[in-house]
Design a protein around this nucleic acid. Structure first.
Length: 918
RNA sequence: GCCCCGAUGGCGGAAUCGGUAGACGCAGCGGAUUCAAAAUCCGCCGCCGAAAGGUGUGCCAGUUCGAGUCUGGCUCGGGGCACCA
């Protein structure tokens, strides 16, 4: 055995061995339990980034561990190959998206292979090939015929200078990223998937996903947003036959409505604008800027009155209709009732525009304060408006009239209390007892909703309704590098789906990208066609599909990537029954991708393509981001020049605290910025390739798994990488030194071990149990690695020179090698073959705990006095509670703090501690 | 703005079911080895304190014999918000 650890040679040899033996090939085998381990497939952006390495290492560790546990493991890989970056690259470098994508795939495949992942490469595919996307075109036509795909108008970001539709991320501060032009909202016809038809199932099935993180289920639940409320109408004042519909979850506050707000796109707003230039201008202003909800919601809340009045359906009062930029046309009816007293947003709006406020819910505290203050005012003979229970105007009355007067101190105090409480409840968004509400006064919110809904229903002006926040999924994209939508537009027959025998609609690959609209719309050879129905002249749809379409079913296709005659086949039932056993990917996909994939699985079930597999992903692990420190220099004009961490030296004080940083090139200081997600814009990315080249794949894998638990963000550290490499070198040396002394059998007689050796063997078997639990149940790898490090520290300190000791050394090193094998398979493969000549670690079973090794006669218990650690006692594992208490009370360290006082209580936590309360 | 998550030494993190806070690693400091350096090995290492001891898990309250862990209220940081993937 060579004495030096040489990762390059070892890794090459191990990878060759796995290739030649087909170690990662997955073959259906009904006699074994299957384990389908899937990592989110990458977008082929050029080269792997650290997030990929992290994601795929987690997947590989779980795959290899489960293989050692006897599962039939499938770990596939492919390419999410359609998307915008290919078009951007085409614009920048004048290369066609297809060629750019395919060469990226080739390079990234090489990188993945160099990391030693046990991937079944025979199942690889890229979604941009007709062999893949033909099936989603085919599915699209099926869904179209079933009415699950339909066409309607949708709003997009329109760049009036580049004459193109922009993605949300291409709109920066309301302007186009390339042209700088003010973006406009534009309505265009688009195809939609009827995901709302599955809202109820998508919601209820979340309860059947115990293998998902609670936070992801919660996010999806909130996204679907089921709410029960009341949908009701305000008849127009001058034309009661015309009605303005709104939805509210707080029908109990309906008596507090003081105005109604509609979206700028609402027909009523449009109508009012005809003779109102100011309003027309405002609506036009609302039409500017992007469509992203985050931007709309953070905009300054603005509004204008329309001059149109509607009739309150219960009070008959006239309330004015306003146009508000915060009302979204895409939610519900594009109109909301406004109750400033009980809604934060309406409150802000009413304060800004001095609109009336009517309080209809009050807390017990407010009612009490109101009562006391008004009684006191009455007793003092001070006049106050005889309004019903503390409306908003009372705040102003207090501030303008009472606080300017000299009130008797006791009255002043009560009025101040009321004033404070009134401010506190402006607005009051809690439910409570109704006031000021006519016949509903005195009802509790829940009962009030029932009564109000019943009254509205009796008038034919509304009723209870279940509403979802979830909207149908618009899938049309006015882009080139995507899957063509298989529809033919015929003047006589309308929209006709492309018949099966004409599929796939192949995306032409030799195109010129100009950045102004889709090139497909400029290619008659693509769009000119004949109608499949009437044979007449027709035009092919030139929009492509949202790239979420590809990623919504790829996990099923891995089961049968070679099937040229069907989308999926019976092999899906083998690999995906009960769901994919483990899915791993970034938390940023918690909502959209995962929701669409769940939706697709149900769609494909209902189209009869797959049986009822249940939810597609039984267990989900959402990994955190990879972050790194940022450094910059301020340039003239305040712009920041970001400097890569690799080019910076950090200066520390004598305790290792950073005091500053300098640029390697010139030795002059740079500013230390925050720790942020690795990105091009902050120039803080670390190329994994450099790491692999310098230290090898195992070091990269080990560092990434050791640095933090998988679901937390991972901070990059060059020094930490050194540490990981040192550990592998040390492991190599430990095995080398042992092997140099000759190999021995691992058969061990527990009784012939010295105390220290028995301690080591107990630790060894405890570690086996812990590591298996960490890999299998906890999916926390940093602690598994730490446990093996601890084991090897103990190994180093134990005298193992005698024959029994040599056998224990053999057992410890063999086990440690296998425990680490899922994380560092190359060195594991090499070391195991040295320890057991001819053995293949890749085929070995995971080490099994020997219960005899775990036995212990005595344990240490901590002694606390009043909850503070004061001492420790050693007791027999068989000791009863009374004798433990006695031993603790007799402990001299504890007695010092008991100071002879009688113990009030003694708490014994078995196996842990004794707490004496005095 | 809305939904979700997080915060523990100089740093990454550990403490799995409310029971010894800081495992493991990094950085730092001291020493051995070396002509010297690298590598390696040994020791120290939350803060205050000479020690005894006190104090300490973002902040403020609370529950408990006992809180990093549970409850309420904040602060700061991050993810998502439907055309980035």
């Amino acid at each position: 055995m060579q004495d030096k650890y040489t990762p390059a040679d070892i890794e090459r040899a191990a990878q060759l061995h796995w290739d030649q033996t087909g170690a990662a090939r997955a073959v259906e085998d009904a006699t074994k339990p299957k384990y389908y381990c899937l990592s989110m497939f990458p977008y082929p952006s050029g080269k792997l980034h650290m997030g990929h390495v992290r994601n795929y290492t987690i997947g590989d560790v779980l795959s290899r561990f489960h293989k050692m546990q006897g599962y039939n493991v499938l770990q596939p890989m492919g390419w999410d190959a359609f998307g915008m970056p290919a078009e951007n690259a085409a614009l920048q470098n004048n290369v066609p998206p297809a060629g750019w994508t395919y060469s990226n795939i080739d390079y990234m495949r090489t990188q993945l292979k160099s990391l030693g992942f046990a991937i079944d490469w025979e199942r690889e595919f890229a979604t941009c090939t007709p062999e893949y996307y033909r099936w989603e075109q085919w599915l699209f036509t099926r869904l179209y015929e079933k009415g699950l795909v339909y066409k309607k108008l949708g709003t997009v970001n329109w760049d009036p200078v580049d004459h193109t539709v922009l993605a949300n991320e291409q709109v920066i501060d309301g302007r186009g990223w390339r042209s700088g032009a003010l973006i406009e909202k534009r309505e265009i016809p688009m195809y939609y998937m009827k995901i709302t038809a599955y809202a109820e199932e998508l919601l209820s099935e979340l309860d059947n996903l115990p293998g998902w993180p609670e936070q992801v289920r919660l996010m999806q639940k909130n996204w679907i947003g089921k709410s029960t409320g009341v949908r009701f109408a305000f008849p127009l004042a001058d034309n009661p036959d015309e009605k303005l519909w709104v939805f509210t979850t707080r029908a109990d506050t309906i008596m507090g409505v003081t105005f109604v707000a509609v979206a700028a796109e609402h027909p009523l707003a449009q109508k009012a604008a005809v003779n109102n230039p100011e309003l027309a201008k405002f609506i036009e202003e609302c039409n500017q800027g992007g469509v992203a909800e985050a931007d709309l919601a953070t905009m300054e809340k603005k509004g204008l009155p329309t001059g149109i009045y509607v009739t309150h359906p219960l009070t008959g009062e006239q309330v004015e209709v306003w146009v508000g930029n915060y009302v979204l046309m895409s939610y519900g009816d594009g109109a909301v009732m406004a109750v400033p007293a009980h809604d934060e947003r309406d409150w802000d709006f009413s304060v800004r525009h001095t609109l009336p406020v009517k309080r209809v819910v009050a807390s017990q505290q407010l009612l009490l304060d109101w009562h006391k203050a008004t009684e006191a005012l009455k007793a003092a003979g001070i006049a106050y408006p005889d309004t019903e229970v503390a409306p908003y105007s009372f705040i102003q009355f207090i501030e303008q009239n009472l606080f300017t007067k000299q009130l008797p101190p006791d009255v002043h105090e009560l009025v101040s209390m009321l004033h404070t409480q009134l401010l506190h409840e402006s607005p009051n968004c809690d439910k409570g007892i109704l006031i000021n509400s006519g016949k509903y006064t005195g009802l509790e919110s829940g009962a009030a909703v029932d009564a109000i809904a019943a009254d509205l229903a009796a008038k034919g002006l509304g009723d209870k309704k279940v509403q979802f926040r979830l909207r149908d999924w618009g899938i049309s994209r006015q882009r080139y590098w995507g899957c063509p939508i298989p529809i033919i537009h015929c003047k006589t027959c309308g929209d006709v789906p492309v018949p099966d025998d004409q599929l796939p609609v192949v995306l032409p690959e030799n195109v010129e990208i100009t950045g102004a609209g889709s090139p497909l719309a400029r290619m008659p050879e693509f769009y000119e066609t004949t109608c499949p129905k009437c044979g007449g002249h027709a035009r092919r749809e030139t929009d492509t599909m949202d790239t979420f379409f590809e990623s919504s079913w790829y996990f099923l296709r891995y089961a049968c990537p070679d099937n040229a005659t069907a989308m999926v086949d019976e092999r899906v039932a083998y690999w995906c029954k009960g769901g994919i056993d483990q899915y791993i990917g970034g938390i940023e996909h918690a909502i959209l991708h995962l929701l669409y994939s769940r939706f697709f699985t149900k769609l494909m079930r209902d189209v009869g393509l797959i049986g009822d597999l249940g939810e597609p992903f039984a267990n989900l692990l959402t990994q955190g981001m990879v972050v790194a420190p940022t450094y910059y220099r301020e340039l003239d004009g305040g712009k920041k020049q970001w400097i890569n961490p690799a080019d910076v030296d950090v200066v520390t004080d004598e305790r290792g605290r950073p005091t500053g940083a300098t640029l390697k090139a010139d030795g002059l200081p740079v500013v230390i910025g925050g720790t942020e997600k690795m990105s091009k814009s902050k120039n803080n990315g670390v190329d994994p390739q450099a790491l692999i080249d310098q230290y090898g794949a195992d070091t990269a894998r080990l560092f990434i798994m050791f640095a933090s638990p998988p679901d937390q963000s991972l901070e990059w550290s060059d020094a930490g990488v050194e540490g990981a490499f040192r550990f592998l070198r040390r492991l190599w040396k430990l095995v080398h030194d042992h092997v140099a002394g000759g190999l021995v059998e691992t058969k061990i007689d527990q009784n012939s071990l010295s105390t220290a050796q028995a301690d080591l063997r107990r630790k060894l078997h405890q570690t086996m149990g812990k590591v298996a639990d960490d890999y299998g149940r906890r999916k926390q790898f940093n602690t598994a690695i730490a446990a093996v490090m601890e084991l090897l520290n103990a190994y180093d300190k134990t005298d193992l020179a005698d024959p029994t000791g040599r056998a224990l050394a053999q057992e410890t090193l063999e086990s440690a090698t296998l425990l680490l094998f899922p994380i560092v398979p190359h060195i594991g493969q090499a070391l195991y073959a040295e320890l057991k000549p001819g053995a293949d670690a890749g085929l070995a079973a995971f080490p099994k705990v020997d219960p005899a090794a775990l036995k212990q006669d005595e344990i240490e218990l901590v002694v606390q006095v009043n909850g503070k650690l004061r001492g420790a006692i050693r007791v027999s594992t068989a000791a009863d509670k009374a004798s433990i208490e006695a031993a603790a009370l007799a402990n001299p360290d504890a007695q010092k703090f008991i100071e002879g006082k009688p113990p009030k209580k003694v708490v014994v936590v078995p196996g842990r501690l004794v707490n004496i309360v005095v």
